[in-house]
């Protein structure tokens, strides 16, 4: 199958990309790695009239320490993040999670900005990012703004990114040697997770107390396991806290899992993730 026809704009700078988005409005889509968008277009589930290719914009791929944060360029490909030494030292959950996205070929093309912008409730890196907390830096016609990750994922393939904005950077706290784990449950290694759980210890207590915990595929978007985080902050045991992981979630039912099973997996994987994180 093949995408419907479209016009391709090759942006050479973020400014140019934003200008193209402004010009073409909701008929335009950003093309980064293309591994979320092109599959949809081939099935004709998406038919944008204009694609703005940001793959050729220089300087969008980097991982660097800036104060207490790690800044990751939106164009950083999954395999680059997977192999990145700075990320491994400063925020090790990210390279590990990046290494579990899709398969090697997908990781060679897909970008962190692309997966964040896509807003898929079952995607790996957004789950880990949400557990970390931090910000998404976006650029629009009025310049740059910063959106906390906790406010970025709004619903089913819906994010805080406006139609005329481009993600330029992701900023997350340095977790260093704090414990972490990403528990991904699939039938086959390269499937989307049926449920996944990211747990990250915060050196400073962090936004959610001692651990940030986020869930994939338990609601319309990736979500934090707030009840679990709060219980841990209150000093609850891992088992007690994990038993609350599905509270407030609204998982979908499909052929892989009904709601009851997904809720069970969320609790189970949260317990396992926290146990691993605590053991680290």
């Amino acid at each position: 199958m093949i995408p419907g026809p479209f016009e391709l704009v090759r942006a050479t700078s973020v400014d140019e990309a934003v200008a193209a988005l402004v010009e073409h409005g909701d008929d335009a889509k950003i093309l980064a790695g293309g591994h979320s968008l092109l599959p949809l277009m081939k099935l004709r589930l998406a038919m944008p009239g204009v694609l703005v290719d940001i793959g050729g914009i220089p300087g969008m791929s980097y991982v660097r320490v800036e104060g207490d944060e790690v800044a990751i360029g939106a164009g950083t490909r999954h395999h680059e993040l997977e192999k990145d030494a700075v990320a491994a030292a400063e925020v090790p959950i990210l390279p590990c999670t990046a290494g579990q996205v899709g398969d090697p070929q997908v990781r060679h093309r897909g970008t962190i900005g692309g997966t964040v912008a896509h807003g898929d409730p079952a995607s790996d890196l957004p789950t880990a990012l949400l557990a970390l907390g931090g910000d998404v830096v976006v650029q629009g016609p009025d310049g740059r703004r910063t959106v906390p990750l906790t406010e970025f994922f709004l619903g089913f393939f819906e994010t805080a990114l406006a139609e005329d904005e481009v993600i330029v950077e992701i900023r997350v706290p340095r977790t260093g040697s704090a414990g972490w784990a990403y528990e991904k449950f699939t039938r086959r290694a390269n499937d989307w997770p049926i449920v996944a759980v990211a747990a990250v210890g915060h050196r400073t207590g962090g936004v959610g107390g001692p651990y940030g915990v986020a869930l994939a595929n338990m609601a319309g978007s990736v979500v934090r396991a707030t009840a679990t985080e709060e219980a841990l902050a209150r000093g609850a045991s891992i088992a007690e806290a994990a038993a609350l992981a599905d509270e407030g979630t609204n998982p979908s039912a499909d052929m892989h899992a009904d709601q009851e099973y997904r809720r069970h997996l969320a609790r189970l994987l949260t317990r396992r993730a926290l146990e691993r994180a605590a053991a680290a």
Partner: peptide, 16 residues
């Protein structure tokens, strides 16, 4: 049909 693409039909891969 609920399994009309290879994203949905769980064709066995090397890892299983």
């Amino acid at each position: 049909p609920q399994t009309s693409t290879l994203a949905d039909y769980p064709f066995v891969s090397a890892t299983e």
